Measured scan of single mutants.
Amino acid sequence: SDEEKKVRDQAKRLGVNTEQLLKWARRQGDEDLVRIVERLLRS
């Protein structure tokens, strides 16, 4: 999905993997991002 591509691009920009991005999203309190990243991790 578009959202998932955006998440992957953001992880690349930050230089982190998906698990690290999830931690980062939780720290930001970004519920939408957390949900998308969790979906990516499960897929």
Rank of each mutant, 00 (worst) to 15 (best):
S1F: 10
S1M: 08
S1L: 08
S1K: 11
S1Y: 10
S1W: 10
S1G: 08
S1N: 08
S1E: 10
S1H: 11
D2I: 09
D2S: 10
D2Y: 12
D2E: 11
D2H: 11
D2G: 08
D2Q: 10
D2N: 08
D2A: 09
D2P: 11
E3V: 12
E3L: 14
E3I: 13
E3D: 13
E3G: 09
E3R: 13
E3Y: 13
E3F: 12
E3N: 12
E3W: 14
E3K: 14
E4Y: 12
E4F: 11
E4T: 11
E4Q: 09
E4D: 05
E4K: 10
E4H: 11
E4I: 13
E4A: 08
E4V: 09
K5Y: 05
K5R: 07
K5Q: 08
K5H: 05
K5L: 06
K5V: 05
K5W: 05
K5E: 06
K5D: 05
K6E: 07
K6F: 11
K6T: 06
K6S: 07
K6W: 13
K6L: 11
K6H: 06
K6D: 06
K6N: 06
K6G: 03
V7L: 09
V7I: 10
V7E: 03
V7G: 06
V7P: 04
V7F: 07
V7T: 04
R8I: 11
R8L: 13
R8D: 05
R8C: 14
R8F: 11
R8E: 08
R8W: 12
R8M: 11
R8H: 06
D9H: 08
D9M: 10
D9I: 10
D9L: 11
D9R: 06
D9A: 12
D9G: 08
D9P: 06
Q10H: 09
Q10L: 15
Q10V: 14
Q10M: 15
Q10T: 12
Q10Y: 13
Q10R: 08
Q10S: 06
Q10G: 06
A11D: 03
A11C: 15
A11P: 05
A11L: 13
A11Y: 05
A11K: 10
A11S: 04
A11V: 09
A11F: 07
A11Q: 09
K12W: 03
K12Q: 05
K12S: 05
K12P: 02
K12M: 07
K12H: 06
K12V: 05
K12D: 04
K12E: 09
R13A: 06
R13M: 05
R13T: 03
R13G: 02
R13C: 15
R13I: 08
R13Y: 03
R13Q: 04
L14V: 03
L14E: 02
L14Y: 03
L14D: 02
L14T: 03
L14W: 07
L14I: 04
L14F: 06
L14H: 05
L14Q: 02
L14R: 03
L14G: 02
G15E: 03
G15S: 06
G15A: 05
G15I: 08
G15R: 10
G15P: 03
G15H: 09
G15T: 03
G15C: 15
G15L: 09
G15D: 03
G15W: 08
V16F: 14
V16I: 13
V16N: 05
V16M: 14
V16R: 05
V16Y: 14
V16D: 02
V16H: 08
N17K: 06
N17R: 06
N17S: 13
N17P: 04
N17E: 03
N17M: 14
N17F: 14
N17D: 09
N17I: 14
N17V: 13
N17Y: 13
T18L: 15
T18W: 15
T18S: 07
T18R: 08
T18A: 13
T18E: 08
T18H: 12
E19V: 08
E19K: 08
E19Y: 08
E19I: 09
E19T: 05
E19H: 10
E19Q: 08
E19S: 05
E19G: 03
Q20A: 12
Q20F: 09
Q20K: 08
L21E: 00
L21C: 15
L21F: 07
L21D: 00
L21V: 01
L21I: 03
L21A: 00
L21G: 00
L21M: 02
L21Q: 00
L22K: 01
L22V: 02
L22N: 00
L22S: 00
L22E: 01
L22G: 00
L22T: 00
L22A: 01
L22P: 14
L22R: 02
K23D: 15
K23F: 07
K23C: 15
K23T: 04
K23I: 10
K23M: 11
K23P: 00
K23Y: 10
K23Q: 14
K23L: 13
K23V: 10
W24V: 12
W24M: 05
W24S: 11
W24D: 14
W24Q: 12
W24G: 10
W24R: 06
W24P: 12
W24E: 15
W24N: 12
A25G: 00
A25H: 01
A25Q: 01
A25S: 00
A25I: 13
A25E: 01
A25W: 08
A25L: 14
R26F: 06
R26M: 10
R26W: 06
R26Y: 09
R26S: 07
R26P: 02
R26E: 15
R26A: 05
R27A: 15
R27V: 13
R27E: 15
R27L: 15
R27G: 14
R27N: 14
R27Y: 09
R27H: 12
R27Q: 15
Q28T: 12
Q28P: 01
Q28S: 10
Q28K: 07
Q28E: 04
Q28L: 12
Q28G: 01
Q28A: 07
Q28V: 10
Q28N: 10
Q28F: 14
Q28R: 04
G29I: 14
G29W: 14
G29T: 11
G29A: 07
G29C: 15
D30P: 08
D30F: 15
D30M: 15
D30G: 13
D30I: 15
D30L: 15
D30W: 15
D30Q: 08
D30C: 15
D30K: 11
D30Y: 15
E31S: 13
E31Q: 10
E31M: 13
E31C: 14
E31P: 11
E31T: 10
E31H: 09
E31F: 11
E31N: 08
D32Q: 10
D32W: 14
D32M: 13
D32S: 08
D32K: 11
D32Y: 13
D32R: 14
D32I: 14
D32T: 09
D32L: 14
D32C: 14
L33N: 00
L33S: 00
L33D: 00
L33G: 00
L33K: 00
L33F: 03
L33M: 02
L33I: 03
L33A: 01
L33P: 00
L33T: 01
V34F: 06
V34G: 01
V34W: 03
V34Y: 05
V34N: 01
V34P: 00
V34L: 08
V34D: 01
R35F: 04
R35Y: 04
R35I: 03
R35P: 00
R35M: 04
R35D: 02
R35H: 02
R35C: 02
I36S: 02
I36G: 01
I36D: 01
I36V: 04
I36E: 02
I36L: 13
I36Q: 04
I36M: 10
I36P: 00
I36N: 02
V37D: 00
V37I: 13
V37E: 00
V37P: 00
V37N: 00
V37Y: 02
V37F: 04
V37M: 05
V37R: 00
E38D: 02
E38T: 04
E38K: 08
E38Q: 03
E38I: 10
E38H: 01
E38L: 09
E38W: 02
E38Y: 02
R39Y: 06
R39P: 00
R39I: 10
R39A: 11
R39D: 08
R39T: 04
R39H: 12
R39F: 07
L40H: 02
L40A: 02
L40Y: 10
L40S: 01
L40T: 01
L40C: 12
L40M: 09
L40G: 00
L41D: 00
L41T: 01
L41N: 01
L41F: 02
L41W: 01
L41V: 04
L41G: 01
L41Y: 01
L41M: 04
L41I: 11
L41H: 01
R42N: 06
R42Y: 09
R42L: 09
R42W: 08
R42G: 07
R42T: 04
R42I: 07
R42P: 01
R42H: 08
R42Q: 11
R42K: 10
R42D: 09
R42E: 07
R42S: 11
R42V: 08
S43E: 12
S43Y: 14
S43R: 10
S43W: 12
S43A: 10
